[in-house]
């Protein structure tokens, strides 16, 4: 599938959409952005300051997502020829496991939107969000949140890596960057929503009201995508 816009690529488009949807449902980056915004507005900073920090934070998320996707793609490509069947099996086994884990453990029980993350790591993120004053700190915070979420985002990233690894390295870079930007769109939306004068409480309320929906649909989507990928693997002759 060298021509990614050709008719032979159309069945893979559903996989891309599915992976992007699942990745967007994962909420660590959104949670930390709301926390960062809460502290920034709470300190009495201007909308411009909030936008500046949020922008750098989003860049951090894009950079980390792009880099991790490139690393996974490079690893897959490097190991593809000798261990193609094993790699396919690992990815196929990984997806439903992550899907189930998402459905069962992504959110902690109780009020709020407490995530599965280990509490010491949450304390670290909370402390960093509270102390973030400059663009560079916001950028690093964005990178840290994506790294922290690797156990879950590894699934959609593996799907995309499998799809783009047969392409050229230029296409890897373009595809990874495009993916990083698209999965960060919820952050951009929240940033514009907040800097246009809306209340942070509304976003948090929406997240709390819809957390079960997001958790179940993303988990179920991963399991469905595995089935779809199994069908497509036959098409690849693997």
């Amino acid at each position: 599938m060298q021509n990614i816009f050709g008719p032979e690529s159309q069945p893979y488009l559903l996989l891309v959409i599915g992976a992007v949807f699942v990745h967007m449902c994962y909420q660590v980056s959104v949670s930390v952005l709301t926390l960062l915004s809460s502290h920034t507005i709470g300190r009495g900073h201007t909308f411009g300051r909030l936008f500046w920090l949020g922008l750098f934070y989003t860049f951090g998320v894009i950079i980390a997502s792009t880099t991790i996707l490139l690393i996974i793609t490079a690893l897959l490509s490097w190991l593809w020829e000798p261990t193609r069947h094993t790699l396919s099996l690992i990815v196929m086994a990984l997806l439903p496991v992550v899907g189930l884990m998402t459905m069962l453990y992504y959110y902690r029980e109780g009020k709020g939107t407490k995530l599965w993350l280990p509490r010491p790591f949450v304390s670290y993120l909370t402390e960093r969000a509270k102390k973030t004053r400059s663009g560079v700190e916001a950028l690093m915070l964005g990178i840290a949140t994506v790294i922290g979420e690797i156990p879950f985002v590894i699934a959609p990233l593996a799907i995309i890596a499998l799809l783009i690894q047969p392409l050229s390295t230029h296409a890897w870079l373009a595809g990874s960057m495009l993916y990083g930007i698209v999965v960060s769109l919820p952050l951009v939306f929240i940033l514009f929503y907040l800097t246009s004068g809306h209340s942070l409480a509304r976003i948090q309320k929406w997240r709390e009201d819809n957390k079960t929906f997001l958790q179940l649909t993303s988990g179920a989507a991963l399991i469905l995508l595995t089935g779809y990928m199994l069908t497509l693997q036959l098409g690849w002759g693997v």
Partner: peptide
């Protein structure tokens, strides 16, 4: 928000 700030992440 005051009640939930510790329950965001």
């Amino acid at each position: 928000l005051y009640e939930n700030v510790g329950m965001m992440v």
